[in-house]
């Protein structure tokens, strides 16, 4: 089943420069898509377009179909319901969008009640269940803590738990591991892979870490200056990149098995 389809999307903020330039791709259910590019290539904006988090009139061309219907024909209310329940998002640092003076549990409850959960007990039950799903122990303490009292890795897992509590069909992850240490990064990647295994969630993963994208994704998109310069199966792109840009990008990745830089051949 096709979950998301982008058709020739172009977007501009100032009317001069295209932030996104003629982008088309589609996401099937249960697929993990990796979008890779350097900073400023428009990869985060792409996610904002899917959620409709952009100023009116900035999309100059093309359409975005979510579950077969175009975003422009949906009412505001309908879109609001869609966000969170059908499409959820994880940001780079969950701590940044949380209210610093409100406890994690209270914010989690607010999130659930906004989407139809009723009753304190029911909420807490759900919260604890989701937190233990992302391998957080000591759920009582976490729900009682303020966001700053948790480490980056814990916050990020709380973010994933929140995003997944309504079982969305599509998860948008904007640099979910960039703020984390390598050991924590490995775990967040593991949690996200589990989501697909358990619920069949489709994921769009935006990252500049090519290693993570290559490990997780079925399909890979390479972005440069707002254009999708390459799109295809991850294995194919890694083994034989078609464009010069992809080749340089892949060559720049420093790997643990690479020859060390000695500066001899200069």
């Amino acid at each position: 089943m096709t979950i998301l389809e982008l058709k020739h999307i172009s977007l501009t903020y100032d009317g001069i420069r295209n932030i996104l330039d003629d982008i088309s791709f589609s996401v099937q259910s249960g697929e993990i898509i990796g979008i890779v590019g350097e900073s400023g290539s428009g990869k985060s904006t792409l996610l904002h377009v899917i959620l409709g988090l952009i100023p009116d009139g900035s999309v100059t061309k093309g359409e975005c179909f979510l579950f077969g219907r175009s975003a422009s024909e949906r009412k505001r209310r309908e879109l609001k319901k869609l966000r969170g329940e059908e499409v959820a998002m994880i940001f780079q640092d969950t701590g940044r969008y949380m209210n610093p003076i409100s406890r994690v549990g209270a914010q989690y409850k607010e999130y659930l009640t906004a989407h139809g959960y009723r009753g304190r007990k029911k909420c807490i039950e759900k919260e604890k269940e989701m937190l233990s799903r992302v391998h957080l122990k000591d759920t009582e303490r976490i729900l009682h803590a303020y966001p700053f009292e948790l480490s980056g890795g814990m916050r990020q897992r709380v973010g994933i738990a929140m995003a997944m509590s309504l079982k969305p069909k599509l998860l948008l992850a904007d640099e979910p591991t960039s703020a984390l240490d390598v050991t924590m990064q490995a775990q967040v990647v593991y949690e996200m892979m589990e989501l697909r295994r358990k619920y069949g969630t489709s994921i769009i993963l935006v990252t500049h870490n090519i290693g993570v994208a290559a490990c997780m994704s079925d399909k890979l998109g390479i972005m440069q200056n707002g254009k999708l310069v390459e799109w295809g199966n991850t294995g194919d792109i890694i083994s034989c990149p078609q464009t010069e840009y992809t080749r340089t990008l892949l060559d720049s990745v420093i790997e643990i098995d690479d020859e060390r830089m000695t500066g001899k051949n200069e």
Partner: peptide
């Protein structure tokens, strides 16, 4: 640390072990 590295050329998500602690925790 070595096991947590994601390499472009090898897919290894199966061998990640879940640990629940980081240094801060």
């Amino acid at each position: 640390l070595l096991d947590s590295i994601f390499s472009v050329r090898d897919r290894h998500t199966e061998r990640i072990q879940v640990k629940t602690l980081s240094l801060a925790d």
